[in-house]
Nucleic acid binder design. Structure first.
Lengths: 208, 208
DNA sequence: TCTGATATTGACCGATTGGTCGGATGTTTT
DNA sequence: AAAACATCCGACCAATCGGTCAATATCAGA
């Protein structure tokens, strides 16, 4: 019976996890030392080993919670209502906004996806993908069954296209920014709106 | 007057660069030791320092040549002729094919883009971007001026969308593969064809 | 054949790495 | 109070890190 201060069950653990998440999201696994993590967490290095048996386990734990949180954030951003078209628009906008709101989590998980030879936690990433995909594919299928979308495209392909556009925007935002003809680098909402509009209406003028 | 064998001016240099490129493309900077590079190149570690003053310089050199080669490969893939529509299709297909043909180069450059706090060679990446973008934007603008495309979209935005779709496909191909509703993970040509078709015609049925 | 320059190496260096250990702090339970 | 427990840390360890250096091997031009 004391939650007086700093003793609320696993407080030390979470301090370590938070510090590790912060550092691992900026630099790669080998570029982050246990010393740096301990320093960031304000504890001693040896103390980390009281909670985690080794560096890999700690990293795995960080990745697990990060993936879980990111998944929650993204799933939360999905829910919408109204016409299929509105749902699609909301989905795209909220998805990108969620990515931009939690850059640490996104970078952490995405780096793991890109690293080779070490499928340490591909399962996590796949779970996140699965959720996004199925939700988006469902929306598209609904649109098709309602006749609001044409029937002759693969919903999974369009889902890939849309999610990819958002992820790409997130990843290369800094580069896009100092590139003259691009005006939407700092206007994610405008970017998404433009993309969705193009997706819906296409590049080719409608036959009159 | 001897190119008999193994003495063709900077042969040692290139061996080192090749080994470093291979290792750096799989693992991050700190995860690759000079020892590993020397071993991969079949020489001694000390010998590396005869050609490169330190690890950073070597990495920079690797990134420089990789970026240059990637840029050449991508630019080569761009050239096309025929109707604007055909040019666009060729562009998209060849661009993705170029990415898939040189996964090492792409991963190397792209990792550098994603790493934080160390803009070691962002210039290289930006150059590659600039080329692709301007080429693609030009195609789209041409289509607009010819009236083959509608006028009310931002060419830079569509270029981002298309390039992003390809990069995203390249990056997350492994994940896409073991995801049931996706049938195009091993069919890049089909993927690109589907994407371009959607881009051109849009999701919404043409008004009859 | 001598000479100067370029390649190449093994041995070594200080620093840092991930990880261990014994003991010093409490806190809780008995 | 004392045993039992979780928490925390300074000091230490072997291994590896990036990097240096003196010594050799190789070879072109004289």
């Amino acid at each position: 019976m004391d939650n007086t201060l700093a003793m609320v069950e696993g407080e030390g653990r979470q301090r370590i996890l938070a510090a590790a998440e912060k550092l691992f999201s900026d630099k790669a696994f080998d570029a982050v030392s246990m010393n740096a993590i301990a320093c960031e967490a304000g504890i001693s290095k040896a103390n980390i080993y009281h909670y985690f048996p080794n560096k890999d386990t700690l990293y795995l734990a960080v990745l697990r919670v990060a993936s879980h949180n990111l998944r929650a954030v993204l799933n939360e951003a999905v829910s919408a209502h109204g016409s299929v078209l509105d749902v699609l628009r909301h989905f795209a906008r909220n998805h990108l906004q969620a990515l931009l709101n939690r850059p640490q989590l996104v970078r952490l998980v995405w780096r793991e996806i890109l690293e080779r030879g070490a499928p340490r936690a591909q399962e996590f990433a796949e779970q996140g993908f699965a959720d996004m995909f199925s939700a988006l594919v469902d929306v598209l299928k609904l649109g098709q069954s309602r006749g609001e979308f044409r029937q002759d495209f693969d919903p999974a392909l369009v889902a890939t296209l849309l999610l990819g556009a958002n992820v790409f925007f997130f990843q290369s935002r800094d580069i896009l920014r100092h590139y003259p003809p691009i005006t939407f680098a700092d206007d994610p909402a405008g970017y998404v709106a433009g993309i969705v509009e193009i997706l819906l209406r296409g590049l080719v003028p409608a036959p009159s």
